[in-house]
Amino acid sequence: MDKDSALMRLLRTPRGAISAVVLGVIVIAAVLAPVIAPYGYAIQNLRLANMEPSAAHWLGTDEFGRDLLSRIIHGARTSLAVGVTSITISMVCGMALGAAAGYFGGAFDRAVTVVVDLSWSFPEILLALILIAILGPGLASTMIAISVAYLAQFTRLTRAQVMALKSETYIEATIAMGAGSGHVLFRHLLPNAITPVIVAGMLATGDAIILEATLGFFGLGAQPPTPSWGAMMSSGTAQIFIAPWIIIFPGLAIAITVIAINLFGDALIDALDIRKRLREN
């Protein structure tokens, strides 16, 4: 498939275009946070605590008088970094495991399947909580916890793809040309199996951001003063009646980001014709 035309198809749909623009803004905000944030994320001013949105503080201030907009912009860094890093780790490991299991089969495949099915029976949040309980709270353990929580999904998906592709004639033809396992796996199976996995990864990134926010809300994620949308909401609960913006704006940030990611993922599925391909198979 021509990659450029798939991207163009994606951007031509309203859904794809809008979500791409929103995601673009969020990513730029995260990357350039120190430059575009009006204030530092950790600058306290207790005299200005719990201020409502104003010209000086567009989204108001929190209970320590920190500028909410600046904290949300910096928080985007945490959310995106955790979401993207953990899903990338999860995808790479899941693909390796799934591809090996699907291709070689046998005892290894059975072992992987058992573990994957077992972990599949726990909700991701529970798995993540167990892991953080072991590793201790913090940004690094959040990433590890989320990677492990989503590992099963990617392993399953890749394994199923590889198993289906394995019996394709061109794989047999490649083997008949004298190719070894590595060649078949990396040059033919994975390139053909990767598209649905990437889309699943895109959609899982949205979930991972929610999971990161949830862990942050419980105080298990990024530790203060590092801004994290979940932790910000958590501290906002105490002020919910006197300063509701403290909880509303980070919540909105999470919602907008996740919706944009999901819409983008959805548009990507259509643009890559995955549904059509799944139907045909």
């Binding site: 498939m1 061109y170 033809a173 040309m177 004298g178 040059r187």
Partner: peptide
């Protein structure tokens, strides 16, 4: 295989990798 004895399989439509 491929070096001294080669196989041309039944269906050319499916014996080439579609993404390469």
């Amino acid at each position: 295989r491929g070096r001294r004895v080669a196989l041309i399989s039944q269906n050319p439509m499916t014996s080439l990798d579609p993404v390469r």
